[in-house]
């Protein structure tokens, strides 16, 4: 028999404390939440109206064209087929509502996440504070957030957006920090050695060089935001999530599947398009190719006598292309 069994851990009222903090926040910061609420509501409603304006088929064509520009004809074709299927399933209007919700959430998450990631990359202390906070936001079950969020923001798009931001902001912060920390230290040092200010170093060197990683982070933010769409439906946000919630309530298997499929199609579309943006995209590749035509015999210098194993322009192109 060990003494451990006799130790009596007292009831720790963590829940009461949290409620106390929450009450204080509601009492003192209500004006802030009201303002935020209004801005988000207007943004989402406005975006829904804009996305609906051209009519479903035309809008689907516009999306396909965007995919063509950014990532090539194959993805554009798949996108067009998928989007037409969404129209055919009669889910276009709800899909556009979900898209608006995802885009607004993403914009807010990015606006918060990138500066926070920059701060975390610059100071180990900030990083140590931010990291567990992000862990908490990501691992606390989303349903738990819904309770205080609904208290603060009521029912509708706004609580959906807020819950989505809490869940989706983490990869934006983390990958921004990672990207900036991984920028070649010598290049950063070079900027400083030539007299760059911290601001010039950040905007001229660190952010541009970290951009592929940051874009990967934004891509992840979008994916997580979309995965929250159904949960947003629970708190009264319309859209595909609302459809799924309604389908669960009425046991409508067909409707649930159609709405779920529409979510998947949106997800695939957004993922491919933003991933392509992250890699510099189709446009970026065109630009680089044009530039490489300027300098043709780059590696020649390694052959000082120039007589044997001459490096040809095509070699250089393959190297650059790789």
């Amino acid at each position: 028999m060990s003494a451990v069994e006799f130790v009596n851990v007292p009831r720790i009222p963590v829940g009461d404390w949290f409620e106390g903090v929450f009450d204080w926040v509601t009492a003192n910061l209500e004006w802030l939440f009201d303002a935020f609420s209004t801005v988000i509501d207007v943004a989402v409603e406005g975006l829904v109206t804009a996305l609906d304006a051209p009519g479903a088929v035309l809008m689907a064509l516009i999306f396909a064209l965007l995919a063509l520009l950014v990532s090539g004809w194959r993805i554009a074709a798949v996108a067009l087929v998928g989007l037409l299927l969404v129209i055919g399933m009669d889910q276009w209007a709800t899909a556009m509502e979900t898209l608006a919700l995802v885009l607004v959430s993403t914009v807010v998450a990015v606006v918060i996440g990138i500066p926070l990631g920059v701060l975390a990359a610059r100071s180990d202390r900030t990083s140590k504070v931010v990291r567990p906070a992000l862990d908490l936001m990501q691992t606390m079950p989303a349903f738990v957030w819904l309770v205080p969020v609904v208290f603060l923001f009521g029912i509708g798009y706004v609580p959906g957006v807020v819950a989505t931001i809490i869940f989706a902001v983490a990869p934006g912060v983390r990958l921004t920090e990672l990207g900036i920390r991984n920028v070649d230290a010598e290049v950063v040092e070079a900027a400083q050695a030539f007299g760059a200010t911290p601001r010039q170093t950040l905007f001229g060197v660190q952010l541009p060089l970290a951009m592929p990683t940051i874009m990967a982070g934004i891509n992840q933010v979008i994916m997580l935001a979309l995965s929250m769409a159904v949960i947003a439906g629970l708190v009264g946000a319309r859209g595909l999530g609302g459809e799924v919630t309604a389908a669960i309530a009425t046991g409508d298997l067909g409707l649930a599947f159609e709405a779920g499929l529409a979510v998947v199609i949106l997800a695939v579309y957004l993922d491919r398009v933003t991933a392509a943006l992250g890699q510099g995209g189709h446009l970026g590749r065109f630009r680089r190719k044009a530039k490489s035509d300027v300098g043709e015999v780059a590696a020649d210098e390694n052959q000082p006598d120039g007589s044997e194993d001459l490096v040809t322009a095509s070699d250089v192109h393959t190297k650059i292309g790789a």
């Binding site: 530039k291 490489s292 780059a298 020649d300 650059i320």
Partner: peptide, 13 residues
């Protein structure tokens, strides 16, 4: 070589 990108140049260059 003004218009080229560094990745197109050899180490010495």
């Amino acid at each position: 070589w003004e218009g080229s990108l560094p990745e197109q140049l050899s180490g010495g260059m």
